[in-house]
Design a protein around this nucleic acid. Structure first.
Lengths: 124, 124
DNA sequence: AGAACCTTACCACGGCGATGTCAAGGTTCG
DNA sequence: CGAACCTTGACATCGCCGTGGTAAGGTTCT
């Protein structure tokens, strides 16, 4: 009844059958299987697939990223280690105006890094 | 002053100068700059570089992954969206012999939930 | 001045992610 | 039975990641 085969599911979620299998392989959405091994996508899976698409396109992230976060939720040690590492971040030298730093942090194509450093140490 | 140039820093942290620049590009460790634009690695950065190496090799993750987690910490919306998505987890087979679909051995690292104690927000 | 080091920019190569397509073989259903 | 669909597996392309190297041009220090 409301369990679609891979092709049907693909059509209603705007993914390709290929990608549905890929997504499953990535451990993100694993549909049930029929006795013969056919993937069966229920309403929940379909909804999840659509949301996944939204997530990926809206934030421009890859399936790998999501899978990684998933991994983090199961590996307390990993999560802790990374978190600890990121924690030791605020290594901003006191004599440097934070404003300058924050400024170029959002500028991916900054080509004036040297300038910022110079301006910070002297009024050059 | 205890601030090393990129080459010196590379030697004491077992990275290559090339990678130090790459790491900076990835937004993970941004050393100060001298007035002329030279990168200056202080004790803190050196330590962080060593820890980073440890982190990466020990958990076999990429700089991108760490960078992503870093991004998550600054983008509440993204973090929330992914978390919400992961929360709406798996529908365990209700009356389907798991053996059936289990026989197609998936990957070796399929680690589905274990927690997910929260009720799905999606229509159940 | 000159050697040694730094900077950015660009080319290169192998690997992996994201996708497509095709092949060989099983399943469904009219 | 046969068409249509499914499954896994393998090959192929494209772009990004991790790295290295090199070129052209400043900086430092002796």
């Amino acid at each position: 009844m409301n369990a679609l085969t891979i092709q049907e599911a693909a059509q209603t979620t705007d993914w390709s059958p290929r990608m549905l299998r890929y997504i499953e392989r990535a451990g993100l959405i694993e549909p049930q299987r029929s006795a013969a091994g056919y993937r069966l996508y229920g309403p929940a899976e379909l909804q999840r697939l659509r949301t996944l698409r939204e997530l990926v396109t809206r934030f421009d992230i890859g399936l790998g990223e999501i899978g990684f976060v998933q991994r983090l939720r199961g590996d307390e040690e990993l999560a802790g280690a990374i978190d600890a590492w990121l924690q030791a971040q605020p290594r901003r030298p006191e004599h440097v105006p934070a404003a300058e730093w924050l400024r170029f942090e959002q500028d991916k194509h900054s080509k004036l890094l040297a300038l910022a450093g110079a301006a910070a140490t002297t009024n050059a």
